[in-house]
Design a protein around this nucleic acid. Structure first.
Lengths: 132, 132
DNA sequence: GCGTAATATGCCTTGACAAGCATATACTCG
DNA sequence: CGAGTATATGCTTGTCAAGGCATATTACGC
């Protein structure tokens, strides 16, 4: 769990982060809104806190957690070089979401099919690449 | 491994994606540049392909893999609501990277320390929230 | 100090997944 | 066809993290 990406890989953690976008929240509030067990919430918050995603303010017995920008900025930064891929046609995302919507996986099969159908460039009949 | 985020959680897969930004690559080319075993590369590519991150073109015995925009767009879209956090002060990322640079974790400790030091709002001495 | 609410932590089990290794498949050339 | 290259796949193993449950900790009001 060393990287920012591993941390947001966990769905419940992403849910917590999304909850915190609107306003700071107590553990209990998160527990109820996300319908998850209290220890689970605390553990995820610990991970998020240690990775710098959130910070807490003590208020009596409870702790109010709020977002901290840096780690998500890091994700944003990593994403930057790839943005050139879709600057222009925005519709690819919609198609992708359509495909992946129904319990995910079926997209894989379809993608596979398309991939296998893709033909090679006819010109590239040569082979035998040298080892260097 | 149902979500896009779990897929980019793997460092080698992110490395492969980054490699493909510049141009399409064969499995062998990836294998050498990233110094990883061939089966590992193939397996990661399979995961990436089934998730729609890449697609392949057959060229004789080899397959040329190239990026596909949709899944990364999905990440970008998820990130959108959080961007309001750092639109304005861009320096938070730099500080974060400085802290997390040396083998990660130490940032956690520091963040912890700051967090614990954070005082509660003095006005909020009352407690006993009702259950609704 | 006692009861209670809010949160954190420790232990254990279970599932998932990445890596390693061997092997299968596909294609090319001579 | 046979050898060689490129890629994929199957199996096994070690690791690690999430969830469940019990329990510790801290803060409050009375």
């Amino acid at each position: 769990m060393t990287s920012v990406f591993e941390i947001i890989a966990e769905p419940n953690r992403r849910a917590i982060l999304s909850l915190l976008v609107s306003s700071e929240q107590s553990v209990r509030a998160i527990e109820r809104q996300l319908r998850m067990a209290q220890p689970a919430v605390s553990k995820h918050l610990r991970v998020l806190r240690e990775a710098g995603f959130v910070e807490a303010t003590v208020d009596a017995q409870r702790r109010l957690y709020r977002l901290t920008p840096a780690p998500l900025q890091e994700v944003d930064a990593w994403l930057a070089p790839f943005r050139q891929l879709w600057s222009g046609h925005v519709d690819a995302l919609e198609r992708h979401l359509d495909r992946t919507a129904r319990t995910a996986q079926p997209a894989a099969t379809k993608t596979n099919a398309r991939t296998n159908k893709t033909k090679a460039t006819p010109a590239a009949k040569k082979h035998a690449r040298r080892r260097s």
